[in-house]
């Protein structure tokens, strides 16, 4: 029986490695045919911004890997509209990999998952 997995991105990229490390977990679990939801809440919404230039900080840019989520069969990619709004970000600033959602739907997705990851 396939188990489901919710992966919660709640931190901005580059100040720490959590985004990159969660992405690696997501892609590996996808290879095992687990049903995966990638959820972007709080400062995690910054992970999806276009035109990231971390090379200025000598950091590796992992943002393009988010575009591979769909390729790996990860179809549920939700970003919190409340958290975008709170940060004065519009969906047009994000890579076209996620669907706008809200806390209620995201909480429901978490509640229905067998496993939940947050780093």
């Amino acid at each position: 029986m396939s188990k489901s997995l919710a992966i919660i991105f709640n931190k901005a990229p580059y100040g720490n490695q959590s985004g990159r490390e969660l992405l690696d977990i997501a892609l590996m679990a996808a290879a095992f045919d687990m049903e995966i939801s990638a959820l972007f809440i709080g400062d995690g919404v910054y992970q999806l911004l276009t035109n990231q230039q971390p090379d200025i900080l000598h950091m590796k840019n992992h943002s393009s890997t988010y575009k591979a989520l769909e390729l790996y069969g990860i179809e549920t990619v939700l970003v919190s509209s409340e958290d975008l709004e709170q940060r004065r970000l519009s969906e047009s600033r994000l890579m076209p990999v996620s669907s706008l959602s809200n806390h209620k739907q995201i909480n429901k997705t978490i509640a229905e998952s067998d496993f939940v990851f947050m780093l």
């Binding site: 690696d24 590996m28 095992f32 687990m34 496993f115």
Partner: peptide, 16 residues
């Protein structure tokens, strides 16, 4: 990391 996924599949619970 496959060992983490395998641990999930073979365990009732995973606690972080």
């Amino acid at each position: 990391l496959g060992q983490l996924t395998e641990a999930m599949l073979e365990s009732d619970r995973l606690v972080t």
